[in-house]
Amino acid sequence: MAEKIAQLIVDLEEEQTVAAVRTALDDGTDPLVLVEELREGMSEVGRRFEEKEYYLSELIMSAEIFKQAIALIEPHISGGADMSKGAVVIGTVQGDIHDIGKNIVASLLRCEGFDVHDLGVDVAPAAFVDKLKETGAPVLALSGLLTMAFDTMKETVDAVAGADLRDKVRIIIGGGPVNEAVVEFTGADAFGKDAAEAVRLASG
């Protein structure tokens, strides 16, 4: 059953995946086994994306199916089980409201098992710092599409340093025009050229 679920998500079979998860839960399958199988399916989708067999739309669809399946499974997982791979704070920096890339990355991070704190768009540097302090997240992901966002990314990186968190937090950036020169300008650690790479960077 579990193996079939992994294949169903790879095949982007939305209704069949959800139905199979529901049936497996009714049959008493260990929910953690189902989560692992779903993640296995997502890993295969990620591999196909990196090999250029799959495109972004397929990545987005698989993440949507994963989200629905996890919502079914979560109530069956006992409180003691910790599935989190760690916390990530993410947001689109101040002065920019573009959220497509940020939302995709947040969604994929959740699929990978990260505890994602999405602050939304037009986020002030202080808000990122406050959330990092509150969560102790070791990863900060900043997004922006406008070139003006480079300046607020830099301000955010500086604010993290000003709060004595810089050596505890890995800062990754992304967005349409972002490249290595922007990493250097902002003082971030790395940039992801696409959503899959951003997830890989967050994983360390």
Partner: peptide, 9 residues
Amino acid sequence: VPAALLKLG
């Protein structure tokens, strides 16, 4: 000509 180059280059 990329936007980032025109701003940062």
